[in-house]
């Protein structure tokens, strides 16, 4: 087993503490957690339902720890459709042998086509059925991203597959397991890695009413927004690319819980509102679901203008 020096270990702990937003007084506890994880033996199965793989790609954007560290020092990623070398029947053996053994953490990306099981099939078996088998033998489940957590776009109004969130689908099928929702479209890698560390080391974190960890999804985007002063001064952007508060272009920051404004994306580079783009509420339970709540309010204005002309 790779040894990790005390110095490396404290450095990593400090990074994780920052990642989790815990104070430095909690460092010894975080340090113990890292030591547990340092064995890299926590088995993880990653299943993909009706997904775009965007959350898997986002996980690869993790910085501290980076993907190699995650795969070799934090978890034993037994199966992941996009990363596993095993393919075909061999891949199914890996999946099925793990389900037989049980005792893993199950990560699910993507929604469940509850009314049309043929709309997602893996190894000849409907994903909906595979999910029930895998969930029944799991220690705990993390649903990764908008689709797995709340249904997302596959479950939006007019969807043809009767798509459901993992929680809805498992409940309907009588499977009760600890389940944590880590929403976002895609998930932020820190949210995922931070939650995994929390679960493996300390147990289930404190969750909000939608089942998402409060440490990431407690505060409104609006309340932490760098353009909050523009809102207070009623300095509103009227056109795309204008400076000022994006509220009148449809920004959903006032009703969306996430820490994007302080965490930022892609190694702290930027985030939607800093780039002049209204928040589209991708971490909300209602994200994308209704055609009567569009992402932008520009069309209303443009339409009124066009109809007048």
């Amino acid at each position: 087993m790779p040894e990790i020096s005390r110095r490396q270990f404290m450095l990593l702990s400090a990074k994780l503490a920052a990642l989790l937003g815990v104070s430095t007084t909690a460092l010894p506890a975080v340090a113990r957690a890292v030591q547990t994880l340092a064995s890299g033996q926590a088995p993880l199965l990653w299943l993909q339902g009706q997904s775009c793989s965007g959350c898997s790609v986002s996980l690869l954007n993790a910085v501290h720890p980076d993907p190699v560290a995650i795969l070799t020092r934090y978890v034993s990623m037994q199966f992941h459709g996009t990363l596993s070398t095993a393919t075909g029947e061999l891949a199914m053996s890996v999946l099925n042998d793990n389900i037989r053994r049980g005792g893993y953490l199950l990560a699910v990306e993507g929604a469940v086509p509850a009314a049309m099981p043929e709309a997602c099939v893996i190894g000849g078996e409907p994903f909906a059925q595979q999910l029930l088998r895998a969930a029944a033998a799991a220690e705990a489940i993390v649903t990764v991203g908008a689709c797995a957590c709340y249904g997302g776009i596959p479950a939006a109004e007019n969807n043809p597959t009767g798509s459901q969130s993992v929680r809805e689908y498992l409940q309907a099928n009588g499977i009760a397991k600890p389940l944590i929702a880590i929403p976002g479209c895609p998930v932020h890698p820190d949210w995922l890695v931070g939650t995994l560390v929390q679960v493996l080391a300390f147990g289930v974190p404190e969750l909000n009413a939608d089942g998402a960890p409060k440490m990431f999804f407690d505060r409104l985007v609006h309340d932490q927004c760098p353009r909050f002063a523009d809102y207070e001064r009623e300095n509103f952007a009227a056109h795309f690319s204008d400076r000022g508060c994006l509220f009148k272009l449809g920004c959903l920051g006032p009703v969306t819980h996430a820490d994007c404004p302080t965490r930022l994306w892609n190694a702290g580079t930027n985030f939607c509102i800093n780039a002049g783009a209204p928040c589209i509420g991708c971490s909300s339970k209602e994200f994308s679901r209704s055609m009567t709540l569009p992402f932008y309010r520009k069309s209303e204005q443009a339409q009124i203008k066009a109809d007048k002309a």
Binding site: G49, Q50, S51, C52, S53, G54, C55, S56, V57, S58, P113, M116, A119, C120, V121, I122, G152, I153, P154, A156, E157, N158, N159, P160, T161, S163, C185, P186, I280, S288, M291, P294, F295, Y296, K298, S299
Partner: peptide, 28 residues
């Protein structure tokens, strides 16, 4: 082996939703 029905879901929506919804066809 996987179908979601984006083209059906888009129908009736605000045209400006399209560049956000269709990006979610693929995370790569």
């Amino acid at each position: 082996e996987m179908f979601r029905g984006f083209e059906t879901i888009l129908k009736g929506r605000d045209p400006l939703d399209a560049q956000q919804i269709t990006q979610r066809i693929c995370g790569v």
